[in-house]
Amino acid sequence: MAANVKRVSMNLTERDLEAIRFLAEHEGTNQTVAVQRALQLSKFFVEEVEKGSKVLLRRPDGSMVEVVVR
């Protein structure tokens, strides 16, 4: 294990675990990397919203919806 890596313990629901498994399978990676990516993506969105950015999602039909990040 790398020197800057810390082991953590979390209490997660079955729903949380299913989400981690889904992301890992979807991304073709392991569960640790899936959680790391999810955390960094969430952090990115929060930081952007704090700067005044809006997160928009374009649906297949071309409509746009704002994703509310809290």
Score class of each variant (00 low, 15 high):
M1S: 05
A2M: 06
V5S: 04
V5C: 08
R7N: 11
R7W: 07
R7V: 14
S9T: 14
S9H: 07
M10L: 14
N11L: 10
N11Y: 12
L12Y: 04
E14S: 01
R15N: 04
L17P: 00
A19F: 12
A19D: 11
I20H: 07
R21S: 01
F22T: 04
F22I: 05
L23G: 10
E25K: 13
E25R: 12
H26N: 12
H26V: 09
E27R: 15
E27W: 15
E27M: 15
G28V: 02
G28A: 10
T29R: 08
N30T: 02
N30V: 05
Q31G: 00
T32C: 06
V33M: 08
V33D: 03
V35Q: 02
V35C: 10
Q36H: 13
L39W: 04
Q40C: 05
Q40W: 05
L41S: 12
S42T: 12
K43Y: 08
F44L: 15
V46M: 08
E47M: 07
E48T: 03
E48K: 15
E48Y: 10
V49F: 15
S53R: 08
S53I: 08
K54Q: 12
K54F: 08
L56H: 00
L56K: 06
R58I: 05
R58Q: 00
R59W: 01
R59Q: 09
P60K: 00
P60S: 02
P60M: 04
D61A: 05
S63N: 06
M64N: 03
M64S: 01
V65E: 00
V65T: 09
V68R: 02
V69Y: 11
R70P: 11
